[in-house]
Design a protein around this nucleic acid. Structure first.
Lengths: 133, 133
DNA sequence: CCGAAGTAGGACTCTTTTAGTCCGACTTAC
DNA sequence: GTAAGTCGGACTAAAAGAGTCCTACTTCGG
C-alpha cells in the first residue's frame, strides 16, 4: 500500500548480495546469490552490475566467473549502496536537486527539510555492510 | 524520476498548511492556504481532513468556517504528520508491518534494518511544526 | 576449437503508488 | 435561501517500481 520513505527492493537486494559476498570470503555467482537469497536472477544481475560500476565489487567473466567484494565491509556505507543503485536521492524534489522545484520562490519549508535531509543522510552513512554480518 | 526514500507531496503540503496555520494565529480556509502555498485546492482539502481526523487541527463548518491548530506547534512531530496523512510507514515491508514479508525465514538483514528504522524514526520525531516557523 | 557457464546490457511489460480531479452532499452565517 | 465553507467517495492519468526476455560477449575446460 504505502511506499513513501521506503527503501526500494533493489537496494534491499543489493544489501543482501553484499552481505552474502562479505560472509563468504570469495567470489560468488549471481545464480548462487539469487538462489540462496530467493531473489529474481535477472533483477539481481542488473543490481550487481550497478554495484560493480560503483567500484565496491569487481566481476570476473566467463565460466568460473562471478563477483567479489573490492572494499572492506565496514567501509561500504548504506549511502553509497543507495547511490550506486538508485543514483542521488533526497527527501524532497529540492533536496534531490534534479530539477529546480518550481515552488522555490514561495516554499517556506526548504530550510527545515534540508536539516532533516542531513539527519537522514547521517543515519544512512552510519550503517555499513559490516553491520549486516 | 526517483521517489525512493522521499516524502510524499501530501506530507509536504500538510506541513506547509500546518506552518501556515501556526504563523497565522487564527483559523484559515482551505482556499486561503491553497492560494498562498500554491497547492491544488481539492488535494489540500483531503489532506486537511486527514489532519483533522488525527486531532492536531479542528474544523469549523459553514460560511466563515475553516481550520485551526488544536495543538502547540512544538508538540506536532513530523512522525505524527506522516502518520496522519499516510498511515504507518516503514523503511521495508517488514518494518511497515502491513503483511508478513514472505522472505522472513531467509532474510538476513531484518535486524540491521530495524535499527536503521529506529534511527530514522528518531530523526522524524525530532522535527516539529515549531521548527518550520 | 567448441560448448557450457558466466557477466553485460538494452528493451520491454505489468503492477502499484502517487498526484490530482470531479462531483454531490451537508453545514451555517448573513 | 443562498453563498461560502467543510465532508467524502469515485475516478483518471502519470510515473515509478519490480520483474522479464533476449541477444551479445567472455573464458575455462575438454
Amino acid at each position: 500500500m504505502l511506499r513513501m520513505l521506503r527503501l526500494s527492493k533493489r537496494v534491499e537486494y543489493g544489501l543482501m548480495a553484499l552481505q552474502h559476498l562479505a560472509r563468504r570470503g570469495e567470489a560468488s555467482t549471481v545464480r548462487e546469490i539469487s538462489d540462496q537469497c530467493d531473489i529474481s536472477y535477472d533483477l539481481l544481475a542488473k543490481i550487481m552490475q550497478d554495484l560493480k560500476r560503483d567500484g565496491m565489487i569487481d566481476s570476473y567473466q566467463g565460466v568460473r566467473g562471478g563477483y567479489a567484494l573490492l572494499m572492506a565491509p565496514n567501509l561500504i556505507t548504506l549511502t553509497r549502496v543507495v547511490g550506486a543503485i538508485e543514483g542521488d536521492t533526497g527527501i524532497t524534489d529540492c533536496e534531490a536537486g534534479t530539477i529546480g522545484c518550481e515552488r522555490s520562490g514561495t516554499c517556506q519549508i526548504q530550510g527545515p527539510m534540508h536539516k532533516l535531509q542531513e539527519t537522514i543522510d547521517r543515519a544512512l552513512s552510519s550503517v555499513t555492510v559490516a553491520e549486516l554480518l
